[in-house]
Simulated assay, not measured.
Amino acid sequence: MSGLTPDQLDFYRTEGYLLVEDVIDPAVFDLLIAEINDIVDTAAEEAHAAGELSELHADLPFAKRLVHIHSQLADPEPLLRQVNGKLKTEGMFAILTQPALLDIVESVIGPEILAHPQFNLRAKLPNQDATVVPWHQDLGYLQPDAEETFMVNFWIPLVDATPENGCMEVIAGSNRAPLIGHEHGLGPGANFKGITDQYLPPGEQVSCPVKVGGVLLIQHKTIHRSIPNLSDHIRWSLDLRYSNPAQPSGRDGVPGFIARSQAHPESVAQSVGDWLALFEAPVA
Rank of each mutant, 00 (worst) to 15 (best):
T196Q: 11
I36R: 03
I258H: 07
T42P: 05
I171V: 12
P78T: 04
G85E: 13
M151D: 02
V152W: 12
Y242D: 11
A115N: 15
E147F: 04
P282H: 04
G189Y: 05
A177W: 00
V67R: 03
G185I: 05
S174C: 09
N120H: 15
I39M: 08
N191M: 01
E35Q: 14
H233F: 07
P248R: 07
P282S: 07
L238R: 13
D274C: 14
Y141K: 04
V210I: 14
N120V: 12
S2C: 00
A281C: 02
L4R: 03
V133D: 00
I258W: 07
N175I: 10
A161V: 02
N84V: 00
P228C: 06
L216C: 12
S231E: 11
L278R: 15
A63F: 03
L216W: 06
I36L: 13
L4V: 00
Y17K: 05
E90K: 14
Q205N: 09
H182P: 00
P61V: 06
C167N: 10
S237D: 06
P126N: 11
G203T: 12
V268I: 15
W135C: 13
G166L: 05
V170G: 12
L179D: 01
E90I: 09
L125E: 06
G173I: 10
P99C: 04
R260W: 06
A284R: 09
I258D: 05
L186K: 08
V215N: 03
W155I: 08
N229A: 01
E112F: 07
S54V: 01
H136P: 00
I180N: 08
G3N: 02
I104P: 07
L142Y: 07
G173E: 10
G187M: 06
G203Q: 11
E15C: 08
H264T: 00
F119G: 09
D274F: 13
P228S: 05
A172K: 13
Q137L: 13
A63L: 05
Y12T: 03
S261F: 00
G253E: 02
E15Q: 15
P163E: 14
S174M: 06
L238T: 13
A146T: 01
P245L: 05
S271T: 15
D239M: 14
A49L: 04
I227T: 15
G85A: 13
A115D: 15
V206D: 14
R260D: 01
A27R: 11
S267K: 12
G110V: 07
R13T: 00
D41H: 12
I95A: 12
P248A: 06
P201R: 02
A49Y: 03
A123F: 11
L276D: 14
G16Y: 09
E77T: 01
L139P: 04
L230F: 10
G253C: 01
Q98S: 14
L217K: 04
Y12V: 05
E164C: 06
L216D: 09
L96Q: 15
H136R: 05
N229M: 02
L217H: 09
I69R: 01
P6V: 06
A44C: 11
T196C: 00
D145P: 10
K86F: 12
L19N: 01
V206E: 14
A284F: 00
A263N: 00
S207F: 08
A94G: 15
S207R: 12
C167Y: 04
Q98H: 12
N120I: 11
C208T: 14
L53A: 08
I24V: 11
